[in-house]
């Protein structure tokens, strides 16, 4: 007989919030550690995968893992306050208990990306899943496997920029890495670029040669970014995006995250643009 306790994928593992970083007025990054060191050790996520976070008594939500697997001993989740569960998470403090199960879904094709230049295009909280891959390729042990890194990132305002330390200080100092940051409207004290991400992308006009473009952000941004990339000559197999759908089980049973016959929780969330074009437009 199946033993429910030993391998029940719907049962989360208890974990503790060890640190909370305020990113923007409505985004916080939570550092979490499993209470059982063995579980922590065995949790082997790949960049782009997601996990189900439990706030016991409130429920669960699917959140992308924003820390790179190269960063051992903890997991980071950047969470925008939009619904019931995320609001409950935002009310928690360091030391509070949560539950984590996963990792779920596919991951960015980091093996195929070896030897290539990478262009990241993110908007708002959409940088969260990209950050796992950015830090993965920038990690000392992997850096030599990848070419130049360009990161184009934008938010509505300076306040809304997530991961300010990464985009303004840490990443620009890394070798072979360029970071382009923009905000939608000019504001006092901001000397950087002003304008929407797709327009900035066209301005920068990166070459598609030997390159993958990875994008995530609000649907409207993704739409125009994809158009811009196509104009610049990126093929559908060079463009990768990661999707967000309402998920409950995370393991392909509960039936709500399907796009056609694909389940985003199993077959996604990472899709090549060429794959996306094969799917019905129901996302």
């Amino acid at each position: 007989m199946t033993n429910c306790r030993s391998h029940n994928p719907l049962r989360p593992f208890p974990a503790t919030i060890i640190k909370i970083i305020d990113e923007t007025p409505d985004v916080k990054t939570f550092q979490m550690v499993f209470d059982d060191p063995e579980v922590m050790e065995n949790f082997k996520q790949k960049p782009g995968q997601v996990a189900q976070i439990s706030v016991f008594g409130v429920g669960e939500a699917t959140i992308s893992i924003t820390s790179s697997p190269t960063r051992k001993g903890l997991l980071e989740f950047s969470v925008k306050k939009v619904g019931m569960l995320t609001s409950a998470l935002h009310r928690l403090e360091p030391g509070c208990k949560v539950g984590i199960r996963g990792p779920y879904g596919n991951h960015f094709p980091y093996e195929k990306m070896k030897g290539k230049d990478l262009l990241f295009i993110g908007g708002g909280i959409g940088l969260a899943p990209l950050r796992a891959l950015i830090d993965f390729v920038l990690a000392e042990e992997n850096r030599k496997d990848y070419g130049n890194i360009e990161i184009i990132y934008g938010a509505r305002s300076v306040d809304d920029l997530c991961f300010k330390y990464d985009i303004l200080e840490r990443w620009p100092q890394m070798p072979g890495t360029k970071v382009y940051t923009t905000i939608d409207r000019a504001e006092q004290g901001w000397e950087g670029h002003v304008g929407f991400v797709p327009a900035y992308l066209e301005e920068i006009n990166p070459t598609p040669k030997n390159k993958y473009a990875i994008t995530c952000g609000p649907p409207i941004m993704i739409k125009f970014v994809l158009q811009a990339l196509e104009k610049m000559g990126f093929s559908d197999d060079q463009v990768i995006t990661t999707l967000e759908m309402k998920m409950k089980c995370g393991i392909g049973k509960c039936g709500r995250c399907n796009i056609g016959s694909k389940y985003v929780c199993l077959d996604g969330p990472v899709f090549y643009l060429s794959q996306l074009k094969q799917l019905p437009p129901e996302f």
Binding site: T2, N3, P9, L10, I251, G252, L266
Partner: peptide
Amino acid sequence: NGTYQDCYYQM
């Protein structure tokens, strides 16, 4: 069934 066994149903 599948990669993730749903133990509630399976049991």
